[in-house]
């Protein structure tokens, strides 16, 4: 595959140099963050590019005083609930739209799809009142329930279900396989890769929620990582190293998740761009 016209060594050297330069640019904010988080307060402003002092105390402080440990746990619980329930509701509704026959199907599907167009900003204030009247402020219900159904997931899984030939369903029915059996034996195995992708996608989206949690929590115990960081930043700007330590603690778990599930991530993000 010798497509190159210039000498090979020179071309790869040029490519590596460019890759390195770009990588350094991208990592620069991360680098300064790490440097600051590992410095004691009196050294932060002193040569911000050099690690001329080292302490782990700031990270420890962010974990305990900044309560990031607690916030991380809350965020994990919220993201896991949203993700798993979203997967279940998406499978169920996608299945119904693909394999069940009922009146007004097109209308109901239209209702589902229309919700894709409504931005979160329009609904927030009114949803806050709804959650309040349900008595769900400061609760995992409040943080999760509005997001446990998704037209996006339904739509995505329905695309895959539609690839199953109708004959297959007919044949299965002849063999006495009911809907439950068909779902378990045929439909779900078929969408398993899509489920992984969708799951990671919604996990990431729930993890990064910013406005909603800040609206419906009034108890520190229910803060998520994002709202906790905001709090840290508004109260401790005189301790930049503490804030930077907080951002590291908030970013590392999700980085690990992403490295582990790299494949699903690519599939999840490209799901919307699949050939149609």
């Amino acid at each position: 595959m010798a497509l190159d016209t210039a000498p090979k060594g020179w071309r790869s050297f040029a490519r590596y140099s460019m890759l390195t330069i770009v990588a350094l640019f991208i990592l620069f904010p991360v680098y300064t963050t790490v440097i600051a988080a590992l410095k004691p307060g009196n050294k932060v402003l002193d040569n911000p590019l050099l690690p001329n002092a080292f302490t782990l105390d700031v990270l420890k402080n962010a974990w305990t005083e900044g309560r990031l440990g607690r916030y991380l746990m809350n965020t994990t619980v919220v993201a896991l609930i949203i993700t798993s329930v979203q997967l279940m509701t998406s499978i169920a509704s996608a299945y119904a739209f693909s394999f069940l026959k009922f009146p007004l199907k097109r209308l109901v599907f239209g209702i589902f799809l229309s919700t894709l167009l409504v931005p979160l900003e329009v609904t927030l204030v009114i949803n806050r009142r709804t959650i309040d009247s349900l008595g769900w402020l400061n609760s995992f219900q409040g943080l999760t329930v509005p997001f446990i159904a998704t037209a996006f997931g339904t739509f995505l899984l329905r695309q895959v279900f539609m690839q199953i030939p109708p004959d297959l369903r007919e044949a299965a029915q002849m063999d006495g396989l009911g809907h439950w059996g068909f779902m378990k034996e045929v439909a779900i195995p078929l969408v398993r890769p899509t489920l992984g992708a969708l799951g990671l996608f919604s996990f990431l989206a729930s993890w990064n929620q910013y406005l909603w949690p800040s609206l419906i929590t009034t108890e520190d115990d229910m803060n998520t990582v994002q709202t906790g960081l905001r709090h840290l930043a508004s109260s401790d700007l005189d301790k930049p190293n503490l804030i930077m330590a907080g951002t590291i603690i908030a970013a590392v778990p999700i980085l690990i998740v992403l490295v582990v599930f790299q494949k699903q991530l690519v599939r999840g993000l490209t799901a919307g761009a699949v050939k149609g």
Partner: peptide, 30 residues
């Protein structure tokens, strides 16, 4: 068409409830 209705209702109901309550109702109200 009619036989599937209860199952369709059970499978779509939860999603529909959530989407109506937290997306379409607030949109109309807004």
């Amino acid at each position: 068409r009619l036989r599937d209705i209860p199952l369709a209702f059970a499978m779509l109901g939860p999603s529909l409830l959530v989407l109506l309550t937290f997306v379409l109702y607030p949109l109309g109200k807004a």
